[in-house]
């Protein structure tokens, strides 16, 4: 479904993303993890056309979309959410989601109806008339997902939709994401909450300082010394190995 090869991007002297290659198969939930500043969000921005890669290629649904504008990539069926939520403040939850629904629906009434349906699916059904700016953090994260979902994407790129949520909110969101996959949407998620990564994703890539350092099923990856070192520093990895 998505094939990324040799993706690189530098900001000034800093190589934020350095030769990343990965393949997302259809119908799965897979994930991209790594410590803060590893380049995960930049990866998403490169894949979805918000940044232009210095090198590398992005192929989505058989088409080379490298250098395409974000709105065209979205129209082809790949939609991202933002780690730093970007609601249309001053518009209601319903109106926010309807903008996504309008991708395939011209009529206003149809888009609003679809928005309500999607809001129900992500658990925002009781806040349709609320100003997006007045939502809690958890609500705004859900709104990000809902807006993207309303476009009927083939592939959904979720950037830390669980960051800032409390454990019970996280427990609520996990089945929502699984249900989206069950509707036939492939999901690539960036996540810090390891519990969620373990529970949801079947395959994970680990990014550190712009480079992929490991990949595989999350449980195996979590035992990888290099990965532990990346997260906790090299000393901790050794101590864990001896323990």
């Amino acid at each position: 479904m998505l094939e990324v090869t040799g993706l690189s991007r530098a900001f000034g002297g800093l190589k934020a993303v350095d030769g990343v290659s990965l393949t997302v198969p259809e119908g799965r939930i897979v994930s991209l993890i790594g410590p803060n500043g590893a380049g995960k969000t930049t990866c998403f921005a490169l894949i979805t056309g918000f940044h232009r890669p210095d090198e590398g290629r992005v192929v989505f649904r058989g088409r080379d979309i490298t250098g395409w504008k974000p709105h065209r990539i979205a129209a082809l069926g790949m939609v991202r959410t933002f780690q730093i939520v970007q609601p249309f403040a001053g518009q209601t939850v319903r109106e926010n989601i309807a903008v996504g629904a309008h991708m395939h629906l011209r009529e206003r009434d149809a888009a609003l109806a679809k928005a309500e349906e999607v809001a129900d699916a992500v658990g925002l059904g009781d806040r349709l008339g609320v100003d997006a700016a007045d939502l809690t953090v958890a609500g705004r994260k859900r709104l990000e997902v809902a807006r993207a979902l309303a476009t009927d994407p083939k592939l959904l790129l979720l950037d830390e939709v669980m960051a800032g949520l409390n454990p019970s909110e996280i427990r609520d969101v996990i089945p929502v994401i699984r249900a989206i996959r069950d509707r036939g949407v492939t999901i690539l998620l960036i996540e810090h909450v390891m519990q969620a990564v373990m529970e949801l994703s079947e395959h994970t890539w680990v990014l550190n300082q712009g480079r992929l350092i490991a990949e595989g099923p999350p449980r195996d990856v979590a035992r990888d010394g290099q990965v532990i070192a990346a997260y906790l520093g090299p000393g901790m990895a050794e101590r864990l190995a001896h323990a």
Binding site: T48, F50, P70, V79, R80, F82, P87, F88, V99, G100
Partner: peptide, 8 residues
């Protein structure tokens, strides 16, 4: 940006 991300 948010609008572009959902196809506008």
């Amino acid at each position: 940006d948010a609008a572009a991300a959902i196809g506008v």
